[in-house]
């Protein structure tokens, strides 16, 4: 979870004009992620198929989903901040109606998304919708 809105994150990432500035912005965004406790980093909460370790926890309150996520890699934590800003506060039905990969591509993360099949980002998006 993070205090930044989707728009704020998108603006920050869209301002990046090189891989280097994107890298630094993701590192900076990673600090916004509320980390999971070790107790929550269970095998069960682990997203399968990610290059780095990624954990995802879902809470529902009156049908509204809130996700918590963490990773052992900083860049991935930065990406998770972007993903959570898209997903949090929506119902499952809303999430399932969204094209999350396309929405995420608007964050100027194309070079991270081209390898999304191998780095596991697609798996994270899928799990959010399931």
């Amino acid at each position: 979870m993070t205090d930044l809105t989707r728009d704020a994150i998108q603006t920050r990432l869209q301002a990046c004009t090189s891989k280097e500035t994107t890298f630094k912005e993701l590192v900076s965004l990673s600090k916004q992620l509320e980390r999971l406790t070790d107790a929550d980093k269970t095998e069960e909460n682990k997203v399968k198929g990610c290059e780095s370790a990624v954990w995802l926890i879902e809470h529902q309150d009156n049908g509204v989903c809130t996700f918590q996520a963490d990773s052992d890699a900083k860049l991935m934590r930065g990406v998770l901040v972007a993903i959570l800003s898209l997903a949090n506060g929506r119902t499952k039905t809303e999430l399932q109606a969204m094209d999350l990969a396309t929405e995420l591509s608007q964050f100027n993360l194309s070079s991270y998304l081209t390898s999304s099949r191998t780095n596991g980002i697609l798996g994270i998006l899928k799990q959010i919708q399931t």
Partner: peptide, 21 residues
């Protein structure tokens, strides 16, 4: 304390191709 994928991400941003994994 630093993930090799993160190190690799910075090296890549600087044009340096190595392998992390």
């Amino acid at each position: 304390g630093i993930h090799t994928l993160d190190l690799n991400g910075y090296l890549d941003s600087q044009g340096v191709a190595v392998r992390a994994g």
